[in-house]
Design a protein around this nucleic acid. Structure first.
Lengths: 211, 211, 211, 211
DNA sequence: TATGAATGAGACTTCATTCAT
DNA sequence: AATGAATGAAGTCTCATTCAT
């Protein structure tokens, strides 16, 4: 699941590396990509030096976390495609379930700088391309099934997904329900029956930002 | 439009204050609520000292900008309600056009800390309540018109609005179109015809975060 | 004497700036160009922040010290040329007396990195050019007086000067005498009577490093 | 050539030790005595741990390099004395040719701290004494030959040598020539014919810094 | 024994806030 | 009252040295 096992680390180094990635993942998700490096190190149970030995700077760490996450999303997308009976259901599952997606999007979209950091990473680009390819297949499949409106493309869907991943501003006790409702509303927007003509043209995966 | 005229400022002090708010508004929108205070001061054409004389700390400045913004949103909401022929159109106008809304939401939602800063401000709470009241009227009106699905409340709509205010990750040349399409999709989700049963219960304004 | 009065500083800022330059000058001479910035700040009696406000980074500080020093050397060279009865005596005075020269050379020569930092500074280049022009005049004058050997140029002399500015490794109590003797030996090397043919060609000011 | 074979190392340990010394020598000469220990280790093809096992800290390494170097200088001095037909020529050869001398002086003179590190080392002191004794013999011999001025001692000569070992600040393409000329000028300063009375008294080897 | 991983102190730099002018 | 200088805490990163494998 990790994209870059680097040569071959000693057992303890490996363990530390994994802990650091895990800690970073958690804290990026929790607090954002600007959490102090010392905090990440402390949460990972290592010294800052160790963190910096493994990841020369914050960017490198972010890149690694992103790679890791993109890889995870890819696996989830593949599973959804393989295991769900219909393309529409695969789409729903993907949109609903991917926690990994959440962090990825948080990193990639919420902060242009972070995205700039990631977008030149070969692994990230590759994963991204594969994920979008799967999404594209799922979208076409769902349209052929007659479930998904025909005037949208993988790009449109991806944008909607990204919307779903915002922190939703609701009182704590209804957060879950709010998320479920928003999700259901978005699905309604995608259904073939909803279809009111959309402006512009169908967005493909390529329309998403690569700038 | 500013909620708190503080005692009564001398003309030049008044001017400075306004310039600072304007600069802060612009830079919060542009860069985010963490822009250096010096930058804000420079853009406002005043010294930092002046900024701090007017706003004891960053929080105070954010609160003031927020007040200002909420006030503006309120005015826009009132105008939409008063000037549009149908409630549905008022809703559409509000959702589509409010630049003030954008910054407000950016401040309030993107950063929990900032929201924490704002939510205890009496003016902010008042404006918020009024805005939500109007939104509530518009929502009910649109439902009575048969345009808006009946299983949503002002809370649901507000959440959807907040989704619209994310920076959308598309290649520069299609940004505009992407935004338009997302907006159209969201409207489709709200139309009476789209209506697939939603989970949970109708969200009122009170369900939105006050935590 | 300071090359860059920057716009116009407030009295206190001016004082601080001068103190920082003075402290830096002393510590660069004493310890070397790598002294911690905090130390310099402390010796100048200011906080680090102040130092950094005035000089964005170590390079900027070094450049300023260098400018200051080159300016001083220039003044000394002008005085030597103007006040001494013969060119030879002007040369001797310049070589013997310039304390400013000492630091300048310490910064410029002992550390290639530091030199790299300085050499692109317009002021430094200008001062350097003027100093070398004066030296050139003095050298030719002394040769016409028959005092200075004819097979050397300003470049050769400058190189010998630079040699004189090393920290000389002697027991503390003879340091002074050692320096005097070395100086006298070097002068002997330059006298017309010493003249044993030299290899290569006469070095002009332009041969000195500008790489 | 190495002064301290320490007990008796296994062949591979021996090899490592030598590689480390060689790497350190090269990098001290190239970059200076502050190069990161990791770098030295890497260049020596060993791990840092190995370096530290052999040399408890940076000081110890510097001391060892210095010992090694002093030993080399001693050998060169002995060879010059033994092989050259006249004392003057021995002197010239020693001054001109010793690369080992260059590093030694770089370490000993450019950095007072490093010198402080070296000067208490018994081996270093012994080598130094022997080298100076040879230099003393060469100096007296050259004076008896009538080639070297009579008002200088081994101390004076050593000081001049040290001057020769500075990095000379010339454009890259003339560096070699500059060095040659400086060398010739220094020799001229030492010739019997140059002799203008010097201030102070003749410097012996003992006058050189032992502080 | 050799390796290279981990540590943590310390250097550099930025910026929110205070304060002298 | 306005200005912008000064402060110092906090964050980033480097590297000498120690220690587990």
């Amino acid at each position: 699941m990790t994209a870059d096992p680097e040569v071959r680390l000693r057992a303890d180094a490996r363990r530390n590396r994994d802990q650091i990635i895990a800690a970073a993942k958690a804290m990026f998700a929790e607090i954002g990509p600007e959490v102090p490096m010392d905090e990440i190190a402390r949460h990972a149970g290592v010294g800052v030096g160790t963190l910096y030995r493994r990841f020369p700077d914050r960017e490198a760490l972010i890149r690694s976390v992103a790679r890791d996450n993109f890889a995870e999303v890819l696996i989830e997308a593949e599973a959804a495609e393989a295991e769900e009976p219909t393309a529409w259901e695969a789409l729903v599952r993907l949109l609903r379930r991917s926690r990994a997606l959440r962090l990825t999007v948080r990193l990639a979209l919420l902060s242009p700088e972070v995205w700039a950091t990631m977008r030149d990473d070969a692994d990230v680009r590759r994963f991204r391309a594969e994920i979008l390819a799967i999404l594209d297949r799922i979208v076409r499949g769902a349209q052929e099934e007659g479930a998904l409106r025909r005037d949208v493309g993988a790009g449109d869907v991806a944008v909607l997904v990204s919307l779903l991943l915002k922190r939703i501003p609701a009182a704590a006790d209804v957060t879950e329900m709010v998320a479920d409702r928003v999700f259901a509303l978005i699905l309604d927007a995608l259904r073939a029956e909803a279809a009111t003509p959309l402006p512009g043209r169908i967005l493909t995966a390529d329309d998403l930002r690569t700038d």
